[in-house]
Simulated scan of single mutants.
Amino acid sequence: MSLIARFNDAMAALKAYAHHPDPRVATANFFALLVASNQPFYPLYVYWTVGPEIGPTAWTFLSTPFFLAVPALSRWNTLVGRAMLPVAGIANTLLSAKVFGVASGVEIFLVPCAVLALLIFRPHERWIAAFPLAGVCFLAYFVLHGAYGAPFHLYSEAQYAALLRLNMMSAGGLTAFTALSFSTLLAEAEAAGSGKAAGGGIARD
């Protein structure tokens, strides 16, 4: 089997693993696998932008199994599966803040975690999942910022500036992609509603 064929098979398997009949759940699954697939490249990003001291990045891999488990959990319970996405993200962010120090700006990842928590749950699920998880993001920053103690590795001022830029760009890109994905999901729902209305009078939920 050729390398291209194997790659296509792997992509098909990942797509099947992330698939779910509920578009909101499928989107959460996709984001979980996206983050997990990007984590192996984070040491390279740090190497290229910060320097050769990439040892501390190994700690970020502790969260990878939890991101990978999101689609499997969603098949068992969609609420638990979706909740695992921001939970894994929050845990990874807090651990990274301890590992790298708050000067790295890694706490900015609490923003996309909060945004995801507010978007992946339906209105009737907000008080049991969305609001508490988003609240944890804000509470973690206000309570833990400056209270992590000494980081596992101290970088120079220039290296921390580079880490800050890297994390700001990564978190900003993830937040923007989250907004774009859910905007597309909303547009598809509106198009489907318009189709129902045109085909059968007033569309009802």
Results as ranks from 00 to 15, higher is better:
residue 10 A to H: 14
residue 12 A to L: 07
residue 13 A to V: 10
residue 14 L to S: 02
residue 16 A to Q: 06
residue 19 H to V: 01
residue 20 H to F: 10
residue 20 H to R: 10
residue 21 P to S: 13
residue 21 P to F: 12
residue 23 P to Q: 15
residue 24 R to Q: 11
residue 24 R to E: 09
residue 24 R to K: 08
residue 24 R to H: 07
residue 25 V to N: 08
residue 26 A to P: 06
residue 28 A to T: 06
residue 29 N to C: 07
residue 30 F to M: 14
residue 31 F to D: 11
residue 33 L to R: 14
residue 35 V to D: 04
residue 36 A to N: 04
residue 36 A to I: 07
residue 37 S to N: 13
residue 38 N to F: 15
residue 40 P to L: 14
residue 40 P to W: 12
residue 43 P to R: 00
residue 43 P to N: 04
residue 43 P to K: 00
residue 43 P to Y: 02
residue 43 P to F: 00
residue 44 L to F: 02
residue 45 Y to N: 14
residue 45 Y to H: 14
residue 45 Y to L: 15
residue 46 V to P: 04
residue 46 V to N: 08
residue 47 Y to W: 15
residue 47 Y to M: 11
residue 47 Y to H: 12
residue 48 W to E: 07
residue 48 W to G: 09
residue 49 T to V: 10
residue 49 T to C: 12
residue 50 V to R: 02
residue 50 V to S: 01
residue 50 V to W: 04
residue 52 P to K: 06
residue 53 E to D: 15
residue 55 G to V: 10
residue 56 P to S: 06
residue 56 P to I: 03
residue 57 T to V: 15
residue 58 A to M: 07
residue 58 A to S: 06
residue 58 A to H: 02
residue 59 W to K: 02
residue 60 T to M: 13
residue 61 F to Y: 05
residue 62 L to Q: 08
residue 62 L to H: 09
residue 62 L to D: 08
residue 63 S to W: 00
residue 66 F to L: 06
residue 66 F to R: 02
residue 67 F to V: 09
residue 68 L to Y: 09
residue 70 V to W: 01
residue 70 V to E: 04
residue 70 V to A: 07
residue 70 V to D: 02
residue 72 A to P: 02
residue 73 L to A: 04
residue 75 R to L: 02
residue 75 R to Y: 04
residue 76 W to L: 10
residue 77 N to S: 05
residue 77 N to Q: 03
residue 77 N to F: 01
residue 77 N to C: 03
residue 78 T to D: 09
residue 78 T to W: 03
residue 79 L to K: 08
residue 79 L to W: 05
residue 80 V to G: 09
residue 80 V to S: 11
residue 81 G to H: 13
residue 81 G to P: 12
residue 81 G to Y: 13
residue 82 R to P: 12
residue 86 P to S: 11
residue 86 P to M: 10
residue 86 P to W: 06
residue 86 P to F: 09
residue 86 P to N: 07
residue 87 V to L: 10
residue 87 V to S: 05
residue 90 I to E: 01
residue 91 A to V: 07
residue 91 A to K: 04
residue 91 A to Q: 03
residue 91 A to D: 05
